[in-house]
């Protein structure tokens, strides 16, 4: 009697494993794994069915788009270690560069493979304040008041947080004519006003909305508007400061993970679809800024005018940014030192 029981276990496990492996495969002819950043879930939940339908019409094949969401750097690390992602849709250029530099998984000139430096959409940082904007927050310089408490994710662990840091730095630097000491003083106060440093963008959102902590949440414009949509327009206001940073959302296909020409064609078609008018409209509906002229005109009232500085213009290059600001012992560490 006893001898049958381990066998039965093994059989059960095997059946379960097969059932499990089969569940995804039987559903579609082809699958595509998109490794994306943390706060893009709703966006791709809207975009993917459109592409699946388009591909079905054009090629008579069913495609299943699998999604994996985590911080951009976490995703890049996973892909370097073997996560079999076919395409990446990140929120930071450095995290794609890593795939070329450390893993040789994509060519160094990946940015030239698709339009707009391989960035089908862009965004900027916005302030989400509580109803009526009691602290009258309008620009970056309003954030360092002694009674203002801030929430944004940790720049050490989140691309979202890094953009906030860079935007604050760039705007202040422009404001005080490049006096770096003044910028550092400002940054030190800004970082001191942070009440909770979550590890990712959505963690910060939860802290601000669900826990009711902080006066201002700094996050992507798209995320800030998404929160307002989700939790009610009466409770929060979205403020886009007059000077801000251009946040690019680079995409590329991962050459080394694509085994056949057919897979490569599918991956490429998926990314090119993101530049098409219907996709750009969906992006704009999700409060991302796009380059398609018709669409941007149509949605112009959603996006306040702001002077968007580019990372490459202000800081040289992303490599330089990572080295001087975010590496161990870099400017961020110095600013947070006691």
């Amino acid at each position: 009697m006893l001898t049958t029981s381990p066998l039965r276990h093994a059989a059960l496990a095997a059946t379960l494993g097969l059932a499990f492996a089969g569940s995804a495969a039987q559903a579609a002819d082809r699958t595509l794994l998109n490794a994306s950043y943390d706060v893009s879930r709703e966006l791709f939940a809207d975009l993917n069915p459109q592409f699946v339908e388009q591909w079905q019409n054009d090629h008579d094949e069913t495609v299943e788009i699998q999604m994996s969401h985590a911080g951009s750097s976490t995703q890049a690390r996973a892909i370097l270690q073997g996560l079999d992602a076919d395409v990446v849709t990140f929120n930071q250029v450095t995290d794609v560069n890593v795939l070329a530099e450390q893993g040789g998984l994509i060519p160094e000139d990946w940015q030239s493979r698709l339009p707009n430096q391989s960035s089908p959409w862009y965004s900027t940082m916005a302030f989400l304040v509580r109803e009526g904007n009691p602290h009258n927050i309008q620009s970056w310089s309003d954030l360092v008041g002694s009674d203002v408490s801030l929430i944004f994710p940790n720049p050490k662990t989140s691309g979202n947080g890094r953009y906030t840091y860079l935007a604050a730095w760039a705007a202040t630097q422009q404001n005080n004519d490049g006096d770096e000491q003044a910028t550092r003083d400002y940054m030190r106060q800004l970082l001191r006003n942070v009440e909770v440093f979550d590890t990712g963008g959505r963690g910060a959102t939860n802290t601000f909305v669900e826990r009711g902590i902080g006066d201002v949440l700094i996050t992507f414009e798209s995320e800030a508007n998404g929160i307002v949509q989700q939790y009610g327009e009466d409770d929060y206001d979205v403020i886009v400061p007059p000077v801000d940073i251009m946040a690019e959302f680079p995409v590329t296909w991962v050459d080394e993970n694509l085994d056949s020409d057919a897979d490569r064609a599918l991956a490429k078609a998926y990314l090119e679809f993101l530049y098409s008018e219907p996709a750009q409209r969906t992006l704009a509906e999700n409060y991302y800024r796009v380059n398609d002229e018709n669409v941007s005109e149509e949605f112009a009232d959603r996006f306040p005018q702001t002077d968007m500085l580019r990372v490459n213009d202000v800081f040289g290059s992303w490599d330089n940014v990572m080295q001087t600001h975010f590496a161990s012992g870099g400017t961020l560490d110095q600013l947070q030192r006691r």
């Binding site: 976490t74 890593v98 940790n154 662990t157 590890t199 947070q336």
Partner: peptide, 17 residues
């Protein structure tokens, strides 16, 4: 310096590759 635990510092190092 206030509420960072060692496990988080470890995760931070990973974030920096």
């Amino acid at each position: 310096y206030e509420t960072e635990v060692v496990s988080l510092m470890l995760a931070t190092r990973l974030e920096e590759y």
